[in-house]
Design a protein around this nucleic acid. Structure first.
Length: 580
RNA sequence: GCGCCCGUAGCUCAGGGGAUUAGAGCAACCGCCUUCUAAGCGGUAGGUCGUUGGUUCGAAUCCAACCGGGCGCGCCA
């Protein structure tokens, strides 16, 4: 249960009874009413803005609504105290028993605690990674992969029907370059000296493996053939080879994509024509000219008439071309078709995770989605800012051209998937991120991964100790929690009770990183409470000669373990049993 | 030139569709510590939330302009 949602319900009920008695006018909009934990815990457990929100429409002073509302709310046995404060806030103090009951919810639900019905089973498509199949995944891709995967998991937990999708850009000029690069390495593998890789082709060492593999499969049969013959073969082989590598890396990172969509297959299926026709039908396509971009006129600018989509009707700055001068579709046209295809597959709700360098593309894609779905579909684009890799504060320089970039595989080999995943989620997606290989594996309080993992391990450790002391750790969901009355314990219980709200808020905002901060705070509170037991043995979890008290405290520890486990599950991070 | 993102404590960052006294970690300073196996623990100090206006009873949060940083800017994907 999300306690705050529960109290909004109570507040609305109280307001309705005030309407029934004529204290409030009939038609009021309750949708802006919030119930949240106040910033300052001294203000109580729940604060609501109800009186202030309704004041205008009810033509009353906030306090004149707040006072009688408070009287009604205090009739709720869960509410032990309350006060009107500031400009008209109502601060409520909620009974300890109410919070203990939330711990009870948690113990029954296990790591399923926090699961929400918010999404009502609505279909959501989360598209992420979607790296070109022209080389290995880099740390930049890793961030998109982790953010997308965690967001998808989060939405799943919040009750949406989520599909995780990867768009393979296997059409267009880049994969032709890939085919040509492969051919060179193929000849090299057969003993030919190929010299420098020409500008524009893919120079990376990894291409040698691709060349060698096709040489092994096909022998010399392509050597004397014209490009038209070998290019499709080389291209298809390389894409297949590199996609397998990418899938392997993703698998190592713990990312399981549900659907891989091929751009080439999409184009060949006629989807682009279909999308084009749909836009034409809506009269959103015309032949016209564009002005060159101001301040940065391309050298090869050539004023010409082209096929344009009326993106400006949907909030974009200029209308966007759909056809290239060679008559082929632009990437944008294909992408419209792809999003149209997603919509046709039932996804009105689409989320794309992109690199920040695609930021200039967001408006036109949103415009296109709005148009092609006749405003029935919605696209949210999360841009992931640059990742820089550091070693002890020192930047590791990367250059794609020089082939010196840190691959995802390097990163995984050095620090492991759990560290990569959690660490990448300790920052908002739209903030640049420095990934320090040393700090990420440090065992200290300022390393959130370690601190949260340690928190989970410590809950397990307490269980092991209890068991060693002869106290059963089974059936904790049934124990009487009334013995939990210490301020620190009650604070922890309240924090556990925040979890369902955190899940819903993070899911609604499409911001998985919030979970990392919540888990860190929860772990910190747990560690702090554990440490109190050093000074005051009476606060320790396992108390000799007090089996009932111990069992109640074990239930609390169990609950903390469940919540951390639940959050780590969203992140795809293994909850460890001990810190070895 | 235009568009998007960002600017919060010395440092790294949360908060960001308004609301009661702006938070954390590190660093600094002051204490404590052979500990329920736990690589430490507790406390203090530190901010005109880039600037200037605006909307509002109320702005770090919304709007505008400006300053500073990043990304992008027809037929690359």
């Amino acid at each position: 249960m999300n306690p705050y949602r529960h109290f909004i319900g109570q507040i609305v009920a109280a307001l309705q009874s005030m309407q029934a008695s004529g204290e409030l006018p009939e038609k009021l909009d309750f949708s802006a009413i919030t119930a949240e934990p106040p910033r300052d815990p001294a203000h109580g457990d729940v604060a609501t803005n109800a009186a202030m929100v309704l004041a205008k429409a009810a033509s009353k002073k906030p306090r004149d609504i707040a006072e009688p509302l408070l009287v009604r709310l205090k009739a709720d046995p869960d509410v032990v105290d309350g006060a009107v404060a500031g400009p008209g806030f109502i601060n409520l103090k909620v009974a300890d028993g109410f919070w203990r009951a939330r711990l009870g919810d948690c113990l029954k639900a296990g790591v399923g605690y926090g699961d929400s019905a918010m999404g009502q089973g609505a279909k959501v498509n989360v598209e992420y990674v979607s790296a070109n199949p022209t080389g290995p995944l880099t740390v930049g891709h890793a961030r998109g992969a982790v953010v997308g995967d965690a967001l998808a998991n989060l939405l799943l937990k919040a009750g949406y029907a989520v599909t995780k999708e990867y768009y393979i850009n296997d059409a267009g000029a880049q994969v032709d370059k890939l085919g040509q690069s492969t051919y060179l390495r193929y000849r090299e593998a057969l003993g030919e000296a190929i010299g420098e890789i020409p500008e524009g082709l893919y120079p990376g060492e990894y291409m040698k493996d691709v060349g060698a593999a096709i040489a092994k499969r096909d022998g010399a049969r392509w050597i004397d053939k014209p490009e038209a013959d070998w290019l499709p073969e080389m291209r298809a082989f390389a894409i297949d080879f590199l996609m397998k590598e990418i899938e392997t890396d993703l698998e190592k990172l713990g990312v399981h994509i549900d659907v891989y969509s091929s751009e080439r297959a999409l184009v060949e299926s006629g989807a682009v024509d279909r999308a084009f026709q749909e836009l034409s039908r809506q009269n959103l396509i015309y032949q016209g000219r564009l002005d060159p971009p101001k301040g940065k006129k391309p050298d090869d600018w050539e004023d010409r008439e082209q096929t344009l989509f009326r993106a400006t009707q949907f909030g974009d700055e200029v209308d966007r071309p759909l056809k290239k001068s060679d008559g082929g579709w632009t990437y944008f046209a294909n992408d419209i078709a792809y999003h149209h295809d997603k919509f046709r597959r039932g996804f009105a709700d689409m989320i794309d995770i992109w690199g920040a360098d695609h930021g200039g593309y967001v408006k036109r894609m949103k415009a296109a989605v709005s148009a092609i779905t006749e405003k029935q579909g919605e696209l949210d684009v999360k841009l992931c800012q640059l990742v820089r890799v550091m070693r002890n504060g020192e930047l590791i320089r990367m250059s794609k051209r020089a082939g010196t970039f840190v691959t995802l595989r390097d990163l995984l080999d050095e620090v492991g998937a759990d560290v990569v995943r959690f660490t990448m989620l300790t920052r908002k997606n739209d903030a640049p991120f420095d990934f320090d290989l040393v700090k990420a594996t440090e065992q200290s309080r300022d390393n959130p991964v370690w601190y949260v993992q340690y928190g989970h391990a410590r809950t397990r450790s307490v269980m092991r100790q209890a068991a060693a002391a002869g106290i059963s750790t089974e059936g904790l969901e049934g124990v009487l929690l009334d013995r939990l009355s210490d301020a620190g314990e009650l604070a922890l219980i309240r924090q556990i009770a925040q979890w369902p709200r955190q899940v819903e808020a993070a899911a609604a905002a499409h911001e998985p990183h919030r979970i990392a901060f919540y888990l860190y705070d929860l772990a910190a509170a747990f560690h702090a409470h554990w440490n109190r037991g050093r000074e005051e043995p009476g606060l320790r979890f396992v108390v000799e000669g007090e089996p009932d008290l111990t069992r109640a405290r074990l239930a609390l520890v169990q609950g903390i373990g469940f919540v951390i486990g639940s959050g780590l599950k969203v992140f795809g991070v293994t909850p460890v049993e001990e810190m070895r």
